[in-house]
Design a protein around this nucleic acid. Sequence first.
DNA 1: CGAATTGTTGAGCATACTCAAGGAGCGTGG
DNA 2: CCACGCTCCTTGAGTATGCTCAACAATTCG
Lengths: 258, 258
Amino acid sequence: MTTVTLKLHNGTNLSAEDGVLLEALFTNRRFIEPRDDIVRDGEPAGEVRVILEGFACRYKLMPGGKRVITAYLLPGDFCNLHVPLLGKMDHSVGALMKCSVADLHQSDVLNILDSRPRIARALWWTTLVDEAISREWLANIGRRSADKKLAHLLCELRLRLENVGLATQDSMTLPLTHDELADTLGISTVHVSRVLQQLKSDNLVATKGREFLFPDLRKLEIFGEFRCDYLHLDNERSATHRTESRFIEPSIVTNLTR
Amino acid sequence: MTTVTLKLHNGTNLSAEDGVLLEALFTNRRFIEPRDDIVRDGEPAGEVRVILEGFACRYKLMPGGKRVITAYLLPGDFCNLHVPLLGKMDHSVGALMKCSVADLHQSDVLNILDSRPRIARALWWTTLVDEAISREWLANIGRRSADKKLAHLLCELRLRLENVGLATQDSMTLPLTHDELADTLGISTVHVSRVLQQLKSDNLVATKGREFLFPDLRKLEIFGEFRCDYLHLDNERSATHRTESRFIEPSIVTNLTR
DNA sequence: CGAATTGTTGAGCATACTCAAGGAGCGTGG
DNA sequence: CCACGCTCCTTGAGTATGCTCAACAATTCG
């Protein structure tokens, strides 16, 4: 089982056999180097691409060279699942560290929609979760102060990383520069630095190289107004049926250095 | 044909018979008064609700009473299509003017997913478009100056309204207060007022009561860095097959006053 | 016509930005 | 193993964009 089917299984109770079926369609498994694009804006709609291991971001380049990061992609996330239906990319996906990815032909996705409703449902589910995260980001960027924005983002990333076995309650290793945090939060690089220092002096976070430490996670979550509902990590519908653990083994590829 | 099936037909070539099938499931058609909620945050997952006529917004209330508007819903848009798969609402939908809505039972939606792949595909398509719009809003709110934010939003709304027959190249009637624009753009009400005045004095827009006039739409779009791709109004896949007009008759209910 | 909501204006202030320079860390090559 | 160079981070100073508060004007609606 890859991270992808595990995620779908945990979120939507995708059966093991459906998981096998889906994975059989993955082709061209390979690695992408940090800073390389995994999918590029404006590209003629190619394959659907999925992150097996690593850490990537969805970003838009704007007139004037500004960049906005609109999502982070973790193991198990799809880069461009919308392409079979929408046709074209309106943004890019870039690797933030070495990533292992695989392809899924558009025609295979379309066939799934027609003939494998349980798998189709799982795929739709992942895009719905992505959308819920976008909405929360709109709230974060639009209506919180810079320090709370950063706190909120750190809480989200910690929880999502924990969910794929890459973070604990009190620490995570993030392959992000201040520049990237800035383009995520809609503030300047310099301000990220200052605001992070403030969080540190308030003992809400600590850092050790690229590692973030959380001396009092609850306090940080309250400060950042973080409520995890929107991540839909334990879907009600599946919670009652779930038997296996949601925990995924930390991968070999991924110790989040670059 | 309602606005809903027209939208799906234009976007995804949903066949007329599938449209009829879908509409047969609409129940409880009724009106919602301005300022009433159409779907409320935290509600136990009820029916899926759809806007037939009117104008509504998706919004989140945040600690401290702040509000963020994360989307506008026009005739043909679904309020909570995610509910059958995600289970719970993580935000509300409120009517901005008198709206005509209908319900669709969750179980009917789930049945569609299992047995009507073409309709399922159309439903997925609408959520993918919504997601594309969210991404563009993140860019707008995160990385543009207040004047460009407003310009961009006006361009988007004009085009979407035109697409359902409620705006022309050079005018639209918007049932929005400065307060609502502010909560959409992540700026203050007062600043909306000032920035709008600036757009007026630059001859990028004019207003007449609740009507916005666009003396030079192209200039406004360039100023607001508006490129319509992300709205996916003429889907490549459907464009080649489409025969009928994309134009929808202006509705009786909806002359956007309130 | 009157009350309530919405929009405008001004003044002072805060948050966050820009620019620029210096420092720290890290990887690469000698 | 050290030196170099790159990227990334930090710090300071000055500035700009946008915010708050408060009062008043204009609409809208009953």
